[in-house]
């Protein structure tokens, strides 16, 4: 079989919203299907509803206001197959002013051999190849998670903070508290 090299990645640029979150770009009037990934909780699924409040910060400590964030997570039962009640995939752009991205989702369960977690994928202007990181939970037993263990003394950069309605997490692209990003 031939071995083909992967197509090179290029930055999503500052106008990623047009293609991926069109309503945010001001394309409400377009005659197209719905914005994909906007809603994860589609019906009345079993599980704990949480608000996941994300920010991405650059090396100067400023919120990144033109990032696109996708998340991929197990169901509360630890499965990666959703149904008509819940979609395991979500997509939000960071707010064009505040930089905040909010996901309404369900608290993930533990997949086999791992602690509950959410995969986070970030693209933006100035990011040439999408960045992959994870979010773990402060109120779960993470001791035996094989991926979190690899992060060593930087593991804290992967653990969210509990809030009244769910969890909040800050991703730092650079600097002393730089988040761990993975070569998957």
């Amino acid at each position: 079989m031939p071995q083909l090299k992967e197509s090179p990645s290029q930055t999503a640029g500052p106008y990623v919203h047009i293609g991926c979150t069109p309503q945010m770009a001001g394309l409400e009037a377009r005659a197209m299907g719905p914005q994909l990934g906007e809603r994860m909780v589609l019906g009345s699924p079993t599980g704990d509803r949480i608000t996941l409040d994300l920010h991405v910060f650059d090396g100067a400590g400023d919120a990144v206001t033109d990032a696109l964030i996708e998340i991929w997570q197990p169901t509360p039962q630890g499965q990666f197959t959703g149904d008509d009640q819940f979609c395991n995939w979500g997509r939000q752009a960071t707010d064009l002013t505040s930089g905040q991205a909010v996901f309404q989702t369900l608290k993930p369960g533990a997949p086999v051999g791992q602690a509950p977690h959410i995969l986070v994928w970030i693209v933006a202007r100035g990011i040439g190849l999408g960045l992959t990181t994870r979010i773990y939970f402060p109120d779960e037993d993470n001791a035996d998670d094989p991926v979190l263990a690899l992060a060593g003394d930087r593991a804290a950069t992967l653990i969210a903070r509990k809030t009244a309605g769910g969890y909040a997490h800050a991703v730092h692209l650079q600097g002393p508290s730089e988040t761990v990003f993975f070569d998957v």
Partner: peptide, 13 residues
Amino acid sequence: THLRAPQQPLLQM
């Protein structure tokens, strides 16, 4: 890229 490039290498997993 100046303020957005991670400075640590990607962690292999």
